[in-house]
Amino acid sequence: MKKPLILVTNDDGITAPGLRALISVMKQLGEVVVVAPDSPQSGMGHAITIDNTLHSKKVTVDKESGAPLEYSCSGTPADCVKLALRELLERRPDICVSGINHGSNSSINVIYSGTMSAAIEAGIEGVPAIGFSLCDYSWDADFQPGLAAVKKITEEALEFGIPKGTVLNVNIPKTDEKGPKGIKVCRQARANWKEQFDKRTSPNGKEYYWLTGEFELLDDGTDTDEWALSNNYVSVVPTQFDMTAHHVLPQLNKWNLNEH
Rank of each mutant, 00 (worst) to 15 (best):
K2T: 10
K3Q: 10
L7C: 06
D11V: 03
I14L: 10
I14V: 09
T15C: 08
G18S: 14
R20T: 14
R20H: 13
Q28V: 01
L29P: 04
V32L: 14
V34T: 03
A36I: 04
P37A: 06
S39E: 14
Q41K: 06
Q41H: 05
D51G: 07
D51W: 04
L54K: 14
L54V: 14
L54F: 14
V59S: 12
K63D: 11
E64G: 06
L69S: 11
C73D: 11
A78Y: 02
A78H: 04
V81N: 14
V81K: 11
A84P: 00
A84W: 00
A84G: 01
E87F: 09
L88Q: 12
E90K: 08
G103L: 02
G103V: 04
N105K: 01
S107E: 01
V110L: 12
I111L: 15
I111H: 15
T115D: 06
I120L: 14
E125W: 08
P128M: 08
I130P: 04
S133L: 01
C135E: 14
C135P: 02
S138Q: 10
D140T: 15
Q144T: 14
Q144Y: 06
Q144F: 07
P145L: 11
P145E: 15
V150I: 06
I153C: 00
E159H: 10
P163N: 06
T166L: 06
T175I: 07
G179H: 12
G182K: 14
I183A: 05
C186H: 10
A189H: 13
D198F: 04
P203T: 13
G205W: 02
G205P: 01
Y209F: 15
T212M: 08
G213L: 04
D225S: 10
D225K: 07
P238T: 03
P238S: 04
Q240R: 06
F241A: 09
M243N: 12
T244R: 02
A245W: 12
V248K: 05
Q251D: 12
W255T: 10
W255H: 08
N256W: 00
N258F: 10
E259C: 02
